[in-house]
Design a protein around this nucleic acid. Structure first.
Length: 507
DNA sequence: ATGTAC
């Protein structure tokens, strides 16, 4: 009965879609609003449930919103779908940034030829070397980063307020050149001041127990966490098309060599900041008798220049700074791990890019808050935001995790990305809920399937709710991006081993 | 996503 109702609602939504191209459609929302842009081939459009569409519509009709884009990886999220872009010239929305502030991808390219890790024994040694430096997992049982690299109170304050500044990178033994490989190395308060953040963080840690909690979160710097976060060794295959191959080479990609892809965010620190902001903003709505958009408290908002908006932007900046340095430290620790097994190898950060953040960007001729919730910035060559950076002549790398069986992709934006507020998806997108995946997917089949594809992991058994088949068909997702004219593939990544939160392997 | 949360 429940299923039937859901299906008919979905059919209605799909009937409302106006197909505008091979992988583009629009969803009208009425009220004189421009329609939602939907990116995806027909099979991808069929993967969107009614609740995903409803969240997109709620987001589009919310105050101050000028544009919403639904990407091929879209599924139900907090207030707004994961896999969407929400644009507003005036308002900021914590829900459409997400719980894990500045959850991001990063890629480290080494000069190690793939043949060096053909042997499982070598891979196991690297896995062990990484696992002892970079913990996975969350919650009470989580291990911490090694004492020698653990971040204390004062350094934690500096990380949160400065991000990947020269001083922070130096203290953590991270090459300073990596800062220019970040989408943003540092985030400040809206007034441009580091002191505003410092004052706010000082206020947050004003009581002993609060300070202790902050410091315990700082000690998580250099860790992956759980859920869909991972670290993965890859073999790089550059595109066979000379134009894209050349872009990959300019970015520092090495065909046939090992690279390391990481997915993680701001850990418990960002979570605490996001949660306390949700609580504060909801309380503000209730005490002022304000109505939540579509009645959904998860879509609470503030005008960017109101006191509430400014406080949110400060906290988002601090969470973002933590996530940035977390990725930088993880990449340095991963490089050290590889060097323990293969002395003398070299490694460079290719890029670090977020998929959970709001950035002020020029869209349709004015500065707007672009909320990317499970969406990746996609600026083509020559874009005004890239002027003066190392990516001006090429566009920046777009790091798209697929799954460890079918691979991941590195893309570059095309001019057509203007149609999606210069954004693409952030990965494959979940197609089965965690509950359904655990119930319907067979453990033996998952593990054998990965072995058949020559992928090993730190886990005795691969987490079922993270299995490749819990996610959408990555090939169809990529086809949607290229057919919609948003981006093209520069390189393909083939996984060789994965580190995830799960039951550790016995050896 | 997260020392979940009832």
């Amino acid at each position: 009965m429940k299923e039937l109702r859901r299906t008919s609602a979905m059919d209605t939504m799909h009937e409302m879609l106006e197909i505008t191209g091979p992988a583009t459609a629009t969803l009208p929302v009425g009220d004189g609003c421009s329609p939602i842009t939907v990116i995806g081939t027909d099979p991808i459009r069929q993967s969107f449930g009614s609740q995903t569409f409803q969240q997109a519509i709620n987001s589009r009709l919310a105050p101050g919103v000028s544009q919403v884009v639904l990407n091929p990886d879209a599924h139900v999220g907090y207030g707004a779908p994961v896999g969407c872009v929400m644009v507003s010239p005036t308002h900021v929305y914590p829900g459409p940034v997400g719980v894990d502030i500045k959850c991001s991808m990063s890629l480290l390219q080494t000069d190690l030829p793939e043949s060096e890790i053909a042997d499982w024994k070598m891979r196991r040694r690297v896995i062990q070397a990484i696992a002892k430096r970079v913990p996975t997992g969350a919650g009470r049982g989580q291990r911490h980063v090694p004492k020698s690299r653990s971040v204390d109170g004062p350094l934690g304050f500096q990380v949160a307020t400065e991000g990947a500044s020269k001083s922070v990178l130096k203290k953590l033994g991270i090459p300073k050149s990596w800062a220019s490989r970040c989408e943003d190395a540092s985030h400040t308060a809206p007034d441009g001041s580091v002191d505003t953040l410092a004052a706010r963080l000082e206020w947050m840690g004003r009581e002993r127990d609060k300070r202790d909690r902050l410091e315990s979160k700082f000690r998580q710097l250099g860790s992956y966490g759980g859920g869909n976060h991972f670290g993965e060794a890859e073999v790089v295959s550059l595109s066979e098309k000379q134009y894209f191959r050349s872009i990959g080479e300019q970015w520092g990609l090495r065909d046939g060599c090992v690279a390391f892809l990481s997915h993680c965010g701001s850990r418990g620190f960002g979570h605490d900041l996001a949660m306390s902001q949700f609580r504060a903003m909801k309380a503000h709505f209730q005490s002022n008798g304000l109505a939540f958009p579509a009645g959904d408290p998860q879509l609470c908002y503030a005008e960017a220049d109101s006191p509430e908006g400014q406080r949110y932007l400060c906290d988002m900046a601090m969470g973002a700074n933590f996530a940035t340095v977390n990725h930088m430290l993880i990449n340095q620790l991963v490089l050290e791990s590889f060097r323990e097994v293969f002395p003398g190898i070299r490694g460079e950060l290719v890029y670090f890019i977020s998929h959970n953040i709001a950035r002020q960007e020029p869209v349709d001729g004015r500065l707007q808050w672009v909320h990317r919730k499970g969406a990746t910035r996609a600026l083509p060559k020559g874009h005004e935001q890239l002027v003066g950076t190392e990516f001006e002549a090429t566009g920046h790398p777009i790091l798209l995790p697929g799954n460890p069986r079918d691979g991941s992709s590195i893309m570059v934006a095309q001019r057509g990305a203007a149609a999606s507020a210069f954004s693409v998806n952030h990965g494959a997108g979940r197609q089965l809920s965690r509950t359904k995946a655990k119930k319907n997917l067979n453990q033996t089949v998952i593990d054998q399937n990965l072995l058949d594809h020559d992928v090993i992991s730190n886990c005795r058994v691969y987490p079922r709710d993270e299995a490749p088949d819990a996610y959408k068909d990555f090939a169809e997702v990529l086809k949607s991006v290229t057919k919609a004219g948003l981006a093209d593939e520069v390189a393909r990544l083939k996984a060789k081993f994965v580190l995830k939160d799960g039951a550790p392997a016995d050896d």
